[in-house]
Amino acid sequence: MIVLTADSASALFTAACQAVLLNGRVACPRDLTTTEVVGAHLRLTNPRRRLVAVPPARVINPAFAVAEALWILSGSDSPWIYDYNDKLRVYADDGVLCGAYGPRLRRWDGHVDQLDAVRRQLLNDRESRRGVIQLFDPSRDHRGYRDVPCTLGYRFFVRDGRLIMHTSMRSQDLWLGFPYDIFTTTLIHELMAGWLDVELGEYHHHVDSLHLYAHNAEAAAASLHGAEGNAELAPVDAPWPDLDHLLQRVLDGDTSLADGSTWDAFGRSLASYRAWKAGERDHARKLATDTPDPLGAALVSWYDHLAPAKPAGQR
């Protein structure tokens, strides 16, 4: 069992890499070699520092982080997510990710909006212990689909005027999954705090199997010597009645959101990456550079990672 605390997702990530490399044991589920720690509690004291950045060893695609978070929050399992991460297709059955969190979060059993249910529960009883969102569904997840949720669920507690969030995971790929999962979960955390009109408290990430695949171990070791980013994203909120409309506007590329808000930064990040994928590299870089948020700088770093800029004078 490892217990780690940090004030940024980057610092938590590198501390977890070190702990797994030092304390992990070999496990080979599905004949894939991993170094694994069974039992991990990762505590993030500032959930707005949700961007993992440890260059040059670990640079993430912030546009995919945004896209996945909005995909989940909107309740979607639509294939547009592949536009931001085509590698997800390998987990699909007939083109659909059957373990997608969004429908389970917003339409459990076809009709229960768990996000709204928790919001109302905690508005009605501030110190309730029933603020639970369940994601793992045994009626679906034992059918043999390629995609089975790693996250079991979320729990929320209002204590001393602050919202504390706990996430439980049966499994976590530390290298590939953690940087994106913590972006989504802390965004949900912050939005829920806003709906409850309380301060944003600590975030707790509990993992049963925290692991590194063998082919990522060397890079994970290198990340221990990287420069940990600690950029703090601007506060983000949305009135509950406006959430779904706002999410759709961002996903549709509505340019009227150009107000410097975090939602504006989300939309610009998605538009930039779409331009990059379309081959409009200069336009993509300009959109990223003009994004007034740490997301813009992170996206420039991602583009530099994909296609390092040539030295001046080199053609």
Rank of each mutant, 00 (worst) to 15 (best):
V118M: 03
R146T: 10
A258H: 14
I2Q: 03
N216E: 06
H142G: 10
A27T: 09
D94I: 06
Y203S: 01
T14H: 03
V20D: 01
S78I: 04
L32F: 15
A57N: 12
W263F: 15
Y91G: 05
I188W: 00
I182P: 05
L299D: 00
R30W: 12
A9S: 12
H215Y: 12
H41D: 12
V236P: 03
G313C: 07
N124A: 13
D109C: 11
T5C: 10
L73Q: 03
L257R: 06
R249W: 14
R268E: 03
A40C: 10
R315T: 14
L88T: 00
D7T: 12
N124Q: 12
I60P: 02
R120F: 10
L270D: 00
L295A: 02
L306T: 14
D304V: 08
E68H: 13
A16C: 11
P79Y: 10
A15P: 05
S256D: 14
L243S: 05
G153H: 06
N230G: 09
G161Q: 08
A15V: 07
L44Q: 05
L246Q: 05
G99C: 06
G267R: 01
G75I: 10
L224Y: 07
D137I: 13
Q114L: 07
G313P: 02
S168D: 09
Y203I: 02
R159V: 13
M169P: 04
R119K: 07
R104Y: 15
E36Y: 09
N124C: 08
G131S: 02
L287M: 15
L105T: 03
R58W: 15
Q172M: 11
V250P: 00
W240K: 01
A69N: 11
A271W: 12
L135V: 12
A231Y: 08
I188L: 09
R25A: 08
A258C: 08
Y84R: 02
H305R: 10
T255L: 13
V300C: 11
E36H: 08
A309Y: 13
K310D: 10
L70N: 04
A297M: 06
L270C: 03
Y180K: 02
S139A: 15
V148H: 06
Y82L: 08
L174S: 02
P47A: 10
L270W: 03
P62I: 06
S139H: 15
D290P: 00
R281E: 13
L187R: 00
L163E: 01
V118F: 06
I188R: 03
W240M: 03
D252V: 10
S301Q: 11
R268S: 06
G201W: 02
S168Y: 14
D259R: 05
T151S: 07
L212Y: 04
N46A: 15
L70V: 12
D31P: 04
P56I: 07
E199S: 15
R126N: 12
A297I: 07
